[in-house]
Nucleic acid binder design. Sequence first.
DNA 1: TCTCCAATCGAAAGCGCTTTACATGTGTAA
DNA 2: TTACACATGTAAAGCGCTTTCGATTGGAGA
Lengths: 334, 334
Amino acid sequence: MVTIYDIAEHAGYSIATVSKALNNKKVSEKAKQKILDAVEELHYTPNSSARTLATNKSWMIGVVFGENLGIGIAHPFFSQVIEGFKKHAELYNYDLLFVSRHMGLGQETYKHLLHRGVDGIVIVQSHGEDEIGKLNHAIPTVYIDRPTNEPGTVYSDNLTGSKLAVNHLVENGHTKIAHIMGEQTTFAGIERAKGFKKAMREQGLPVREEYLVDGGFYSHAGGREAMIRLLSLNDRPTAVYVAGDVMAIAAMKVTKEWGLRVPEDISFVGFDDIKLAKHVDPALTTIRQDKGLIGQQAAIILLDKINTQGSTQNVDKKMVPVSLIKRDSVHRLA
Amino acid sequence: MVTIYDIAEHAGYSIATVSKALNNKKVSEKAKQKILDAVEELHYTPNSSARTLATNKSWMIGVVFGENLGIGIAHPFFSQVIEGFKKHAELYNYDLLFVSRHMGLGQETYKHLLHRGVDGIVIVQSHGEDEIGKLNHAIPTVYIDRPTNEPGTVYSDNLTGSKLAVNHLVENGHTKIAHIMGEQTTFAGIERAKGFKKAMREQGLPVREEYLVDGGFYSHAGGREAMIRLLSLNDRPTAVYVAGDVMAIAAMKVTKEWGLRVPEDISFVGFDDIKLAKHVDPALTTIRQDKGLIGQQAAIILLDKINTQGSTQNVDKKMVPVSLIKRDSVHRLA
DNA sequence: TCTCCAATCGAAAGCGCTTTACATGTGTAA
DNA sequence: TTACACATGTAAAGCGCTTTCGATTGGAGA
């Protein structure tokens, strides 16, 4: 391995000067040039561990994924958020460290992150206990789509999303509107349901108990089951607002299996705007979450925290706007 | 920060002994116990940079994602593969480092990985130049779904996959079978097309030029366009084998838009078995790739390389089996 | 009691870098 | 010519850990 000593010798300067030259500290042009030449010639690559040890700065951000459904990185929503996060963070030369997590979101994970010396932590898990937050530790942290005591959370404007969905349905003549809720232990699920009820009330529409069904963790199976319950009702809704696209797609499918037409008999509005939403039949009208922007905002907040380290009053929460994407799954009632 | 010195002092031993105790080297039971107690009491966490510096082992594996379509981590196929990889790697206490890649898959990326001192590299990119492979460097590397000169690649058995698809179609009475190919600069795209032709020949069926259309990078748009070309033919195929599920779903959609019935008028077989394959209408018959297993195999190969460092003859290539998943998109011809 | 050996522990060097505090050299003003 | 300020470079310490090799100790055997 070629070290700073080799460069120093080759260039005829001390290692201190080499270090300065490489870190853009004050050295003469001549020295800098000679050193850079040597670096080039010897194919020198600085050792990040040594640098981290000396500076106490790792240029790594720890990523903690929840275990929801055990899919981790492959989660359709979170992976896009992280992609947005990464795009921003790498502009500032941070790498992302995905740590082992057979330990869960607990003390062990935090200890491991501490061990790794990450400069910041981004937590991507929508439910479960917030053990790390409780530790009130020293590492700057940002949360995505999850409530927390600590400042630094980014999430979609779920309330407005629900409102957009309900209003769109109402504008199309629907009054018998059901809601397939997301898991009621998740922040998003709770907020969307809350938004649904609020929007219905604002429209002067009743929120019927039997039109409120829990679809669980946003899965196909959950959406299917929830829809079956709705279909089994004597007085079926004419439209259903579903708290997640995956559930919505499953719901549409089972509706068709029951011999009903979508959207003529039952209309659907989803939430997320996953890639396939526009490719199913009928194309799904949905509330789009800007995953990339969520990730980017989280990165901005975290980098700010890292750079100011509590000196300034940090951003508390950041709500990212959502939008209604009209496609073909909503029918206009006569 | 509490260091090994604090532990040493607290426990009444030297730092050397502390280090040994923590690394399960030979120390007396008594010493070990006292040291462990001190660790507990002072909330000591070892510093990985220091350890890495001293041992030249980072316990990190670098992950290089391709930029195909700019989706990176959120790629529906690769993210699942990486998830499988991670599950295995973390059993052995490795963390995954996703490095910045505004640099692409070139020398710069490799330099950065070297800088980080990762113990191994997993390359997840299906096409483009293999700059890193060319460098014939020292860091153990494994490739996923991509040909390489270096030993250490994992990929699905694309040839057999194509054969399964074609045979299934033939068994259902189809003879006019088209193929929407994946991008012909990707390994998978090439192999699947090759397998298609081979299987057709084996069945004694002609491979008609106009039944072979390129869908590009496995995207919705590509699948749609390719299908339109097929639909525009005077003599349409009765079945099409599509090299990717996303393209297949787009193809089915446009077929229905053209007023044809799926699968009665045209049958479809996809490739991948993405999550939504079974939730579209009709549910897509497809060739399943075992993404988790691919990732796991890659991890096994890489860890083996890391641990043997060229001393043994390493595994060259590893082909992961695929399977036919029968659903509702194939119609039996009378 | 003395010798010898095995078990146990510790001093110190070293991993590759940054940074402080000081030494040297150069040019400028008096 | 002398004094001084500034620019430039360096020695050395330190970041937190591992590991080698020698020192110390205690017990077994004679």
